[in-house]
């Protein structure tokens, strides 16, 4: 069981590295925001996996609050982009 959780976590970490590559390289600002949005979604899944690994119920609450804050911040950034002038 432990070895399976290790494999899953390593694969998820690789996908997080791919996302961070886009976040650093991304030609425009919205590209980076999309990468960040995706980063938070993957991290939520990883947090729940870690909660199972450590058998810690509190981490589930942490992941719920994390997903909530990520959603609100992405909405706020999108609203800001809609009204902001383009300056790159």
């Amino acid at each position: 069981m432990t070895i399976l959780i290790w494999i899953w976590s390593i694969i998820l970490s690789i996908s997080i590295i791919l996302v961070l590559y886009r976040c650093i390289k991304g030609p425009s600002l919205p590209d980076r925001v999309i990468a960040l949005d995706m980063f938070t979604t993957i991290t939520t899944g990883l947090l729940v996996l870690i909660a199972h690994f450590l058998n810690n119920y509190v981490l589930l609450d942490v992941s719920l609050v994390y997903a909530l804050l990520a959603f609100i911040s992405v909405i706020a950034i999108a609203r800001y982009l809609e009204s902001a002038k383009r300056g790159d």
């Binding site: 998820l12 690789i14 996908s15 791919l18 996302v19 886009r22 999309i34 995706m38 993957i42």
Partner: peptide, 8 residues
């Protein structure tokens, strides 16, 4: 998740 990251 990994396929999505690859697509990105």
């Amino acid at each position: 998740s990994t396929l999505g990251a690859l697509g990105l």
